[in-house]
Every structure is written in C-alpha cells, then in structure tokens.
Amino acid sequence: MQNMKLKLKIWKQRDASSRGRFVTYDLDGVSPEMSFVEMLAYLNEKLVLKGDEPVTFEHDCHEGICGSCGMYINGYPHGPVKGLTTCLLSMRYFKDGETIVIEPWRAKSFPVIKDLMVDRSAFDKIQQAGGFISVAVGAAPEANTIPVRKHSSDLAFDASVCIGCGACVAACKNASAMLFVSAKVSQYALLPQGRPEAKERVRDMIAEMDKQGFGSCSNTGACEAQCPKQIKLFNIARLNREYIKAL
C-alpha cells in the first residue's frame, strides 16, 4: 500500500473569543484509501500520543448524510471534488507531498467554537421560523387522499436532500444562506400539503435569515457548485417566486 506524506496547515482557535492562527503539521503514513476525516483522526491519534493538543473537528455518520463534517479545504468547502462531503472525500484525490490548508467555515452567522468546529445553530433558527407543515400528530388524513404529481414530488425530494452542513454559506462570497432556505421552502412549496401556509413560511424564514446575519444572494452559483447534495440554484428562483407571491 502506498504511503503519502502531507503538510497540513490547520486553523487552530481556542474558543470563540480567542484569536486563532494556522499551525502546520507534517503527517507521514497517510493511505490514499483513508477518507479526509480518517486522515485527521489519524493525525489526532499521533498528536495525543505525543502530548500535543488534537485538532477539534466535527464528523459523525461518515456517509455524507448527517451534515456534521465540513471544512474549507484548499479553497473549497468540503474539498475539491464535487458532490462529496468531507467525510466521503477520499485521500486518493490528494498528491503525495501536497500542502493542504484547512480552515473552518467563515461567516458571521457561523462563529467558530473551536478550531474547525463552528456554531451552525442559525440554521435551526431559520427552520424554527417556518420550516415545517403545521399538522399535529393524529390530524393527518389517509396518505393517498391527496394525490401528488410525481414530477412535483421528485422535485420536492431533490430539494429535501439538504443535509444542513452549511457549505453553501461557506462557499458564497456573501455568506448567504439562500440555497439552504430555498431548499426547505421549495420542498414544501412543491407539495400540496405545504401550500396552506406557504406565504407565512417564506416570509418568516426570510426574515429570520436576515436576522441571523447572512448575506444576500448575488446569484454567483458558488453554493450550487459546492453543495455536496447538488441542490439546484433553481430552488432559489422558486424561493424568490414564492416570496413575491407572499407579498
């Protein structure tokens, strides 16, 4: 098995109020079969044994679905390969001897907690503002009572695969959360079940998005390019449409 040697330049920051800086680590013995987070875990194992402070970063499911992981790798959120989360990013995409710069998501709404770990609770706040359909347990009609056009249902699904990782915000030059919000708004707007409160939903979610300090959308498309779930920019158009309808 091939062995890789890497130079890692990683952002280290004690807590939200401290100043951070880059620390460089030389890491030997990396296997191209490792995933990016396994590589970092391997680094941490070495650091701990040496008596150094390990790098704090988030990861959980390791299959690209929980949305925990996320770091800005060499200028790309989740790294240079499209459609992958950091946990699925294989080290075979990197070269032996390469220098890899790893930074946390940068946004006013995502303050750094420690090292590469950021606080993404602003997304929860947006969801709480209106990202739901208000049907109480027990009140639902039989599932097939309302037929849904397959095409709409498929589009709703395509939007609903968002994992809330925040790569769209990290990639956007404005740190805008429009792709995230549009994915949620689209999912519900496309389903007949979501129509009754469509207006309130889009108004409240947009208001909360502004309140959380995210930037506006410049339609650059960086979010779409970096979204590990490849959520489409058309959802933002739909969000805008829904918003006009709600005026």
Partner: peptide, 12 residues
C-alpha cells in the same frame, strides 16, 4: 399518513 401530511416526499 402523518409523515405524508408533514411533507415527507415518499416515492410516488
């Protein structure tokens, strides 16, 4: 029934 009503896009 409940998941459908709260907008879970099951296959159709």
């Amino acid at each position: 029934d409940h998941f459908t009503a709260i907008g879970v896009p099951f296959a159709r």
